[in-house]
Amino acid sequence: MENGKVVSLEDRIPKLKEQRRKKANRRLIFLLLLFFLIIVCVIYFQSPLSHVKKIEITGNHLYTYEDLEKMSGITTETNIWTIKKDQLASKLKDAGGMKSAKVSISIPNTVQIDVKEYRKIAYFEVENEFIPLLENGDMLHDRAMTNSPYDAPIIKDIKSENDTVITKIGEELSKLPASVYNAISEIRYTPKDTDKWHVTVYMNDGNQVLASLSSFSDKMEHYPSIIAQLNTDKKGVIDLEVGSYFKAFDSEGEKKSED
C-alpha cells in the first residue's frame, strides 16, 4: 500500500527495474574505475615515471656526493619502489667512516640520504700516502691522498699494523680543545724502553713537545698556558712526561715551566 492506497504489481515493476539498472550502472562504473586504476598503476611501475629522478644527500664531508651516490647503487634506472631503505642505510654505514645513515623516499621520485660521519682526526702517513684517521681509530684507505694535507695533524713513524697505538692517538686527539688540536702539525711515534706510548709532537709555532699517549690529552690541553708562561720568543722542546720542562734549541740549560 502507498498512502493508504493499493499499488498494483504492474505499477511497481518499472520502479524495481529502474533501481536494478542504477545499481548495475554503479557497479559497472566501480569496475571500470578499478580497471582503469590498475592499468594506470601497471603503466606507472613499468615506465620511467617510477624511476628515481633525484638523490638528495646531506651530512657528508669525508665522502663527496658522487662517492655516496655510487656507494648507494641507485641510478636513474632504479625503480623507487624497489629501494629497501633499511638495507641501503646499513650498506652505506658498512662502507666505513659513518656513525649512521638514514634513507627516506619522497614521492614521486626523490631519494633522500642523510649521513653522520666520524670526525677525521689526523692523517696516517705510509709509503708516501696520507690515509685519513677517524676519531674511532678507523683508517679510510680508499680515501688516501698523495699530496701533503693541511687540515689535520700528520702521524709518522708508526707501522700500520700497530692498531692499538693508532687507535689511542685518535682517541687522545679527539679529546683536545680546538685551540690545541689546530696547533699540532705532526705526531711522531717515538717509543722508549720505559714508555711504549711515547710520542714527539711538532707544533705549528715551531716548538716540539715530548709526551706520553697515556696522559696526552690531559697535559696537552695546558699547552697555551705553558707557552704564555715561558716569556720567551725562543723555540725549543717542551717535556710533558714528568712535570713541564722547556729546553731551547740553542740552549744547553733547561727552563722549568709550571703547568
Rank of each mutant, 00 (worst) to 15 (best):
E2R: 11
G4W: 04
V6I: 15
S8I: 09
K15V: 13
R20K: 15
R20A: 14
R21A: 09
K23W: 03
F30Q: 01
I38A: 14
I43L: 15
Y44K: 06
L49M: 11
K53G: 15
E56W: 05
T58K: 15
N60T: 10
N60D: 06
E69S: 14
T76K: 14
W81H: 09
K84M: 00
K93Q: 06
A95S: 07
G96F: 08
V103G: 05
N109L: 07
T110R: 13
I113H: 03
K116L: 12
Y118W: 15
E125S: 13
E125G: 05
P132Y: 09
L134S: 04
G137P: 06
D138K: 12
M139F: 05
A144L: 09
M145D: 01
T146H: 09
N147G: 04
S148E: 14
D157H: 10
S160R: 13
T164W: 08
T164A: 13
T167V: 08
I169V: 15
Y181S: 01
P191H: 11
K192S: 13
D193G: 12
K196L: 11
W197M: 14
V199F: 01
V201Y: 00
G206H: 03
L210T: 07
A211Q: 01
S215R: 05
K234W: 01
K235I: 10
G236V: 10
D239V: 03
E241S: 03
V242A: 11
D250K: 15
E252P: 02
E252H: 04
E254C: 03
S257T: 10
E258V: 14
